[in-house]
Structures are given as C-alpha cells and as structure tokens.
Simulated assay, not measured.
Amino acid sequence: MRSVQTDWFLYKKLIYTFKPSFRVTEVLQKDNDYFFIFSHNMGNAKSLIGKSKLRKLNPKTLAELQKNVDVYFTADEIQEWFQEYQSNLNKGMSKLTRKDFKEVYNTVFHGDATSFVDQLFRCFDIDGDGFVDFKEFIVGLCVSSSENSETKLKWAFNMYDIDGNGMICKEEMVHIIKAIYKMTNTVEHGEQDSAEEMCTRFFEKFDLNRDGYISFKEFKEGAMEDSMIVKLLECDPDPHI
C-alpha cells in the first residue's frame, strides 16, 4: 500500500477512464489537497492476465516518453501504465482502438458516450492512424489532466475544434456540449441550459471580435474568466465520489 497526492480530476480519470487496477482504501483532504490511500489489486476483467506474463516497456520508448515535456509520470509509473495498457488490449492487438475507448466510457457513464469518445479518441490519436499506441496514450493522459494551464487549455481547445482548423465555430461547440449531455444524461434531468443556450453564452464572452469564431487566443483569455468551458470536458460519471 502507498499514499499519493494528486488532483481530484486526475484520480477520477485514473479510476474511471482507463480502469487501472487500484483500489482506494481511504481519501483524506487537507485544505484544497486530496490524499489517496490505495492498494493494488487485479483490476478489471481484462487485467486477470498475470502481470508477470506481460512484457515490460522497452528502455528506448521509456526514455523517449520521459523526455517528452508533457509527460510527468515517473519511469515506474509509466511501466505500471504499460502493464495496464497491455491488459486492456483485445487479443491480437498491439494498440487501442476507438471501440476500446467506447466500451470503457459506455460502461462507466449512464448515457451514450459514443459522440464524446469520438472526439476524445481524435485528440489521443495524434498521428491519425485510427489507433492509440502507448506513447499517444501516455501523452494524452498527461495532457488532458495536466496542471499546466497552457497545456490544459490547448487540449480543451482541440477537443472543441473538431475540424482542426484552429478556430471553434458554434456548430462544433454545440456538438461537444450535446455529446457531454448525452453521455451524462444531463439534459434529461434538466440540470443545465440547452447546448445551444450554453454555446450562446460562451460565444458572448469568448468571441471578442464578434466574427462568429473563437480563436485559441480568445479561448485562452475567456477561460481565465470562465473556466466552465474547460470543466465541462472533465465529465464526472459519479459526482458523489
């Protein structure tokens, strides 16, 4: 058993998004920090493969990941994630597929996660080959939960910028918000404005030159005043945990 200090969203991302084989035994809070006490177990069904039978990450790839400015995991943590990554691959596969992502999210969330996962997968799949290899997996995990505001904002902007043209239009923002609502069943419970209403509010604050698009500069400046546009992407399958 060991103790770690991390942010609340990253903890949930570890537990829910990629289903690592950790069981939290205690959560302590001091001021604004959370301390998690956890023990290692056998994880999900796909993790029942003996960890001793799974190969370790080769030293060259490990060194490349540690040199990546966006990766903040230690060598041991990267190796642990490599074990989990392998145990979640389908038989005969060496990379995660879009289907793998969807299966995880549709298991975790009460709604339909398909649309949201399509966009999340797009951001993880850096080379656009239709798969997420281990390097992309680690970089995506670190970037999407980064404590560096610039890094986190770039990731959030890319999630909204579906066509990758460097600008967010209203249709793209509505699509992402609707995907989040659909995945979390938010609209059905009447807990938020409609996607169109929320999009309108964001554009009123963020689209400073009123050209109908939000540039990264506008997004960055607006997010400093209203962080909800980023927090929306930090979907919570169980707000009571």
Rank of each mutant, 00 (worst) to 15 (best):
C142D: 02
I176F: 10
D207W: 07
A223V: 07
F203P: 04
S3M: 04
E188C: 05
T97Y: 11
L141H: 06
R122D: 03
E204M: 07
F203D: 09
V117R: 07
K56V: 05
E234N: 05
K95N: 13
K19V: 03
S115E: 14
T184Y: 06
P20A: 10
T25L: 14
K135S: 01
F219P: 02
S47C: 10
D112A: 04
R2P: 00
Y213I: 01
T200C: 14
E103T: 01
K154H: 11
V187C: 12
D226R: 14
K217M: 14
S39N: 06
I37Q: 10
I214D: 12
M198F: 10
K170L: 03
I168A: 11
R23T: 08
N165H: 12
D33Q: 02
T107P: 05
E218W: 07
V174P: 00
M159I: 05
L65P: 02
E103Y: 00
T107L: 09
L141I: 07
K220F: 13
S47I: 00
F124I: 05
E204P: 01
S39R: 00
F22C: 02
I138T: 04
I180M: 10
Q86E: 10
T97I: 08
C199V: 04
F38R: 06
V117C: 08
Q119Y: 05
K217L: 14
F206D: 15
E191Y: 14
F116L: 01
D100V: 01
T186W: 09
D118K: 12
Y16H: 12
T17K: 11
T107R: 03
V69Q: 14
D70P: 00
G222N: 04
R98H: 13
T6F: 15
L57G: 03
S215A: 05
G50Q: 06
S149I: 09
F18D: 11
V108F: 02
F219S: 06
T25M: 14
L120N: 00
Y72L: 01
S87R: 15
K19Q: 13
E234I: 02
Q119E: 12
K135L: 00
T114N: 13
